[in-house]
Design a protein around this nucleic acid. Sequence first.
DNA 1: GCCTTACTACGATGAGTATCGTAGTAATCC
DNA 2: GGATTACTACGATACTCATCGTAGTAAGGC
Lengths: 116, 116
Amino acid sequence: MTVATSTRELAHPEHTEIRLEAVLHALADPLRLRVVRALADADRELACSHFELPVTKSTSTHHFRVLRESGVIRQTYRGTAKMNRLRGEDLDALFPGLLDSVLVAAGAQAKRLGDG
Amino acid sequence: MTVATSTRELAHPEHTEIRLEAVLHALADPLRLRVVRALADADRELACSHFELPVTKSTSTHHFRVLRESGVIRQTYRGTAKMNRLRGEDLDALFPGLLDSVLVAAGAQAKRLGDG
DNA sequence: GCCTTACTACGATGAGTATCGTAGTAATCC
DNA sequence: GGATTACTACGATACTCATCGTAGTAAGGC
């Protein structure tokens, strides 16, 4: 018998530990930006395996860690899966409007470049 | 006798060549973000020498080039000086609200951390 | 022409990071 | 327990980038 949630815990920066430079750096990578956009569009938790990124699993792990450690996403284990969700409220409290304008900008650019 | 403006020209990305990832990367560096904030606060052209950055001249040149080549600033020679101004309108047309929210976020964080 | 000011080009260096492959753990299913 | 799924830790590698020092250019003042 096991309890409903896993005991494995992951380190996340507190509210006050989130740095603008780290968030911008996390968002500046095309693969990570793609993940963030997908999470925003889905508006729910998504497993790492949901994303089909053109890199190996280990590289994916790396990118998800960068997103988590910068404070952009929150990650929790759920069975064998690792679920990801945007820390939208935390970010908006710290940096009002920032995430939204990045998402809108990313959408506009994708449309403009024809890969969105 | 010389004409009023220099003939030296600098390469700038066109409107359509500006990439969100490059802009975010440019803004993700503390020194470059400091420059951008100063330009926004001043609301006018500032010479490179106006900024007293804690790095050598060559490193400064490097950071200003990153800002220019990403499309964040426009640089023009004026005598022996090189003047810098934000490409606020270009950026706002491409990515509405992005620069503003970054500037507000940077201001808020500087206040919060006591170095603004 | 000479000197000063302001920026630059180049090469070197060290730190960071994106990538991979291999081997491994943790939870779940049968 | 054994098999499967999903993610991870580690070491290696190559690439990018922030930094510097030196030597150099371009414009303007004397």
